[in-house]
Simulated assay, not measured.
Amino acid sequence: MKIIEIHGLNRHFQSGDERFHALKEIDLEVEKGECVILRGVSGSGKTTLLSIVAGLDHPSSGEILVEGERLAKLPDRHLSRFRGRHIGMIFQHYNLMEHLSARDNVAVPLIPQGLKMPELKEKVDRAMEAANIAHKAEMSAGRLSGGEKQRVAIARALAADPEIILCDEPTANLDRANARRFLEILAKLHAMGKTILIATHDPIFEELPFEARVVEMENGTIVAGSKSGSR
């Protein structure tokens, strides 16, 4: 079952008389439960593509469907609700509120759902256990190490139990030991049946403990595809 379908997608940005083509005629289909690594140097279009999959940006032309929804056609309010329920995002710089506790950071995306407190707490606790960060639940985010902040960010992405997890350069600010711990958590998410898209140029993803599809990007285009990791 295809969970993401992208056809003839283009994204350009206009600055005065100059037009920059960030993405050019992208065709990509992702199966439910698949892990896809978007690999390329900075400026290759990986992050722009992830942003469009997340509904944070819109294509200039072409089509994108996520779980059968044409994201570019959704009103902002419906798009935000769809993203909150179906897509979890893990960013390079974590995007945590450092004055809040780890637990409260994980809870923030759930607040618009209007959950009763016991249900909200259950979802937060489950996500923090999955990300191996429950033992730091009451500590303020500003006091956590880089690896711990990343695990809080992972828990936040998991809190709503989304089908799709998007990771933008998730190991860029981690040392090798914490990067390998991140791969272990990815393996858990893969075993849970999550669909995972990772934008990266970090070669550590060649060490994934499960098979993933590598999509090479260059100058806003897809130039090749291969397999990485092991079964």
Score class of each variant (00 low, 15 high):
Met89Trp: 13
Glu63Asp: 13
Ala157Pro: 00
Glu69Phe: 04
Ser61Ile: 03
Thr171Ala: 01
Ile196Phe: 01
Ile196Ala: 04
Ile90Ala: 08
Glu169Asn: 08
Ala155His: 04
Met117Tyr: 10
Gly45Ala: 03
Ala157Val: 03
Leu79Tyr: 11
Ile222Tyr: 06
Leu65Lys: 15
His21Phe: 13
Thr195Gln: 09
Leu120Gln: 14
Gln113Pro: 01
Lys123Tyr: 04
Asp125Lys: 10
Ala153Met: 00
Ile198Asn: 03
Lys194Tyr: 08
Val106Leu: 07
Ala107Cys: 07
His7Ala: 13
Pro59Lys: 11
Ala22Asn: 10
Val152Tyr: 00
Leu197Ser: 07
Ile90Leu: 03
Leu71Cys: 02
Ala172Asp: 02
Gly84Leu: 08
Ala72Cys: 04
Arg85Phe: 01
Gly88Ala: 04
Asp125Glu: 15
Lys149Gln: 14
Val41Glu: 14
Ser60His: 09
Leu9Ser: 04
Leu110Asn: 14
Glu69Arg: 15
Leu23Ile: 07
Lys149Ala: 01
Glu122Thr: 12
Leu74Asp: 09
Leu174Phe: 03
Cys167Val: 04
Lys121Ala: 13
Ile4Cys: 05
Phe13Gln: 02
His78Ala: 15
Val53Lys: 06
Val30Glu: 04
Pro203Tyr: 10
Val215Gly: 01
Ala212Cys: 06
Gly146Met: 00
Ala22Ile: 06
Ala72Glu: 14
Ala54Leu: 05
Arg176Phe: 05
Thr221Arg: 15
His201Met: 09
Leu74Phe: 12
Leu120Arg: 15
Leu120Tyr: 04
Asp202Tyr: 10
Glu69Gly: 02
Gly43Ser: 03
Ala159Lys: 06
Ala153His: 02
Asp104His: 14
Ser228Lys: 13
Leu79Met: 11
Tyr94Thr: 09
Val215Asp: 03
Ser42Gln: 08
Tyr94Ala: 06
Leu9Ala: 09
